[in-house]
Design a binder for these strands. Sequence first.
DNA 1: GATGAATGAGAGTTCATTCAT
DNA 2: CATGAATGAACTCTCATTCAT
Lengths: 185, 185, 185, 185
Amino acid sequence: MEAILEAAFQILEADGLAKLTTSRIAERAGVSIGTLYQYFRDKDAILAAMGQRQSDEMREKITAIVLDASGRAGVRDIVRALMGGLQGSPETRMVLSDALFRSGGEGVVGRQHLTFLDSISGRRDFDFPLGKESAFILTHAVIYLLRAAAAEPELALDPAVLEDELVHLMESYIASLAARAAPGA
Amino acid sequence: MEAILEAAFQILEADGLAKLTTSRIAERAGVSIGTLYQYFRDKDAILAAMGQRQSDEMREKITAIVLDASGRAGVRDIVRALMGGLQGSPETRMVLSDALFRSGGEGVVGRQHLTFLDSISGRRDFDFPLGKESAFILTHAVIYLLRAAAAEPELALDPAVLEDELVHLMESYIASLAARAAPGA
Amino acid sequence: MEAILEAAFQILEADGLAKLTTSRIAERAGVSIGTLYQYFRDKDAILAAMGQRQSDEMREKITAIVLDASGRAGVRDIVRALMGGLQGSPETRMVLSDALFRSGGEGVVGRQHLTFLDSISGRRDFDFPLGKESAFILTHAVIYLLRAAAAEPELALDPAVLEDELVHLMESYIASLAARAAPGA
Amino acid sequence: MEAILEAAFQILEADGLAKLTTSRIAERAGVSIGTLYQYFRDKDAILAAMGQRQSDEMREKITAIVLDASGRAGVRDIVRALMGGLQGSPETRMVLSDALFRSGGEGVVGRQHLTFLDSISGRRDFDFPLGKESAFILTHAVIYLLRAAAAEPELALDPAVLEDELVHLMESYIASLAARAAPGA
DNA sequence: GATGAATGAGAGTTCATTCAT
DNA sequence: CATGAATGAACTCTCATTCAT
C-alpha cells in the first residue's frame, strides 16, 4: 500500500522515529490497523519497504540526471545528482538505511552506488584497474559528506561552494589514481 | 558510575539501541535501577554521558598519536589516529553522536574535529585561507568514510590499503587547495 | 466503560486512594490495562469521571425526592434527600470532589447545590434578598455536617434525631433571616 | 524533631501531598534521611505528628482567645477564635485530619472541639440537657463551614459578613434548643 | 547518633500485534 | 477484505525504607 508508506514517511520526517507508531501510520494513511497488518508483516517490514522505496527513487533520479548529460557525464553531474537526489532529513535517511540494511542484509548498499562507478568508468581517462578501496572511496565519499553536511545545519554550508569543493575532491583523487596508474606517462 | 556506562556500552554494542533498557543496564552493571537513577537523571543522560566519554577518549587517543609524531604530524598520522581511535560499531557511534548532540547542543561536534585542523594547519604548505566548506571536507571526509567502511564489513576492505587511499584522497585535495590558492606559482 | 468506573469506585471505597492503582482497577473490572487506557486518558481522567458520575447521580436522586414532595417541599424533604443521596465513604467523596474540581474547574461545585436553593426559594416566607454568605450557609451546612457525621462513626449519631436537628438548624436560621429582613413585621 | 515537622508542613502547604516525599522533607529540614527515620517510624508517623501538632496549636489558640473574653465568652468569640485558629490551606488541613484520624483512631476529633462545648455551657441560658446530635452540630457546624468556605475561594465570601452569619446560625439554633427545652416558658 | 548510597517493588503508561466481527 | 477493541509485555521512572559506615 503506497498510502501507508507515504504516511509513514511523513510521520518519520515530521516527528521522528520515536513517534512513528503503527496506529499513527494507519490513521494518517486513512486505513485501519488491521488493514496495515494485512499488507506488512510487522513494523520493521514497513521501514524496510520505505528504505527500499527511497533507495529505488534515488537511483532512478540519479540515473535520469546522468543520462540527461547525454554521454558526457562528468563528476559534477554526479555530485549534483546526488545533492538533488537525497531527500528526507538526515535522521530519516539514517533510519531507513538501517532498516534496509537489517532486513535486506548484504549487497543492498553496494547496489545503490553502482551507478556512480558505471558512469565514471565511461570516461576515457579512467581505463585503469580500480582497487576495491578506491572504488569504495569514489562511491561513498560524496554521499557520506552530503549526509554529514545535512546533519550539521548549524555549519550553514553554501550548497554551491560545497558542490565545487566536492567536485575538486573527487577530481583530484581521480587524477591521483590516474597518475599512480600510469607513472611513466 | 563507570560500571553503568560500561554496561550500557556493551549492551548497545551487542544488542542495539532497541534493547538498551534501563533495567538491562542496571542488571549488567550489577546495580539496582534505583542506583542507576541516582547517578543519571534519565535514560538520555546515560546516552549523553556515553557520547561524552567516547568523544573524550577519541580526542585523547588522537591527540596522543599526533603528538607522538613529534611535531611533524602528516596527514597519514591523523588518518591512522582516526582509524585507531574509532571504537564501537557504526550504530553505536551514530547513536552516541546523536545523544551528545541532542544534549549538548552547539559546538560539541565542532570541537571534536578541531584536532584535525589544528594539526594540519601546522604544515608549511598550508598557509592559505580555508573556506568553510573546505574545512568541513578536511575534517569530515576521513571520519565518515571510516564509518561507512565499518558499516559495510562485507566489502572486506583492507585497512592498510584503505589507509593509503585515504591519505591520497586528502593529500591530493590539499594539493588542489594549495594550487588554487597560489595560481601563479 | 461503566465497569471500570464501578471497579474503581469499589476499590476506592474498600482500600482507599493509596491502593487505587490502574492495574488493580483493570483487574477488578475484568479488562486489560490497555483497554482501560483506551477509554481514559490517564488515572486522573478516571477519578474525574467518577466524580462526575457521583455528582450526577446525587443530583438526580435529590431532585427526584424533592419533586416527590409534590410542590410543597420543605426543608425536611431536602435534608432527607441529602441524607439519602450521599453515598460512598467520606474519603471517597472527598477524593472525588477533589478530582472533579481539579479537572472541571469552575462552576462544578456551585451547580451541585442549586437544587437546594431552588427548592427553598419556592417558599412563601422566603421572598427576601439573600446575601452571598447566607446562601452559602444554606447550601453547605447540611451537606458538610452530614459529611462530618459520616466521618466520625464512633459518635454513633441517630440518623432520625440528626435529621430533626438539622431541620431545626436550618429552620431557625431561615427564621432569623426572615426576621432580620422584615424587622418591622 | 521540630525542624522536620516544620519542613514537612511547608512542603505540604507549598506543593501538595503528592510532592511531600521523605527525601524532600529531610533535605528542607537540613537533616539526612537516616536521621529522619530515627525520629519517625515512617512517613505516616510524620503526617500524624503534624496533625497532632496542628490540632494542639489550634486548641491552644482558641482556648486563649476564649479565656481572653474573661468569663463572658459569647458565640461570637468562639466563631472568631475558630476563624483565626485555622491555618494552612484546606488541602493541608484535610490531609492532616486524615492522617491524625487514621493513626489515632477514636476520640481524637472529639477532644478537639470540647472547648467549644465547655465555653458555651457556661452560659446561663444553657442549662438544659444536650442531645448527642445537637452537641455535634454545635461543635462542628462552624468548623466545617469555614473549611468549606476556604475550599471555595472563588465564592469570594466576605469574612466579616460570614462571621456575622455564622453567629446568627449558631445563636438561632441555640435559641431553638432553649425554646424546645423549656416549652412552657 | 548521623549519614546517604543502595535498594527494588511497584506505579503509570505505551504500543505492536491479534482476531472476532 | 477491512475493521478496531482488546490485549499485555515491557518500558521508564519514583520513592519509602534499610543498613554499613
